[in-house]
């Protein structure tokens, strides 16, 4: 099952990367990042069947960091939305040029 789990993790990570590259809505991009984090968690847990419980300990850390990042990132998106009334990343390009 290790091989299948690692393959699934790679596929989910790819789908997350494709989502980040092709979507323009800031919140959906953020959710694709969460999908990538989940794929990495899956590969940690799959490898922990081989290397012991350390993998699961690191999954706990990853989840904590993901939760903290989600909270702060969403607060930033709310602040940007209050200012520019949009979450479309193509319109949030004030620092460009």
């Amino acid at each position: 099952m290790l091989v299948e789990a690692l393959a699934l993790s790679a596929v989910l990570f790819t789908i997350g990367v494709i989502g980040v590259l092709t979507r323009r809505n800031a919140i959906i991009i953020f959710m694709c990042v969460e999908l990538m984090l989940n794929a990495v968690n899956l590969s940690f847990v799959a490898l922990s069947t081989l290397h012991g419980a350390t993998g699961q300990v690191f999954v706990v850390f990853t989840m904590t960091v993901a939760a903290a990042e989600a909270a702060v990132g969403l607060a930033i998106i709310i602040a940007i939305f209050r200012h520019t009334q949009t979450v479309n990343l193509q319109n949030i390009n004030i620092l460009k040029g």
């Binding site: 939760a67 903290a68 990042e69 702060v72 607060a75 709310i78």
Partner: peptide, 15 residues
């Protein structure tokens, strides 16, 4: 880190 995230989220989303 969690404490920093909580404080940051509250500060950033205040009106």
């Amino acid at each position: 880190l969690l404490l920093a995230a909580i404080v940051g989220a509250v500060v950033l989303s205040k009106r």
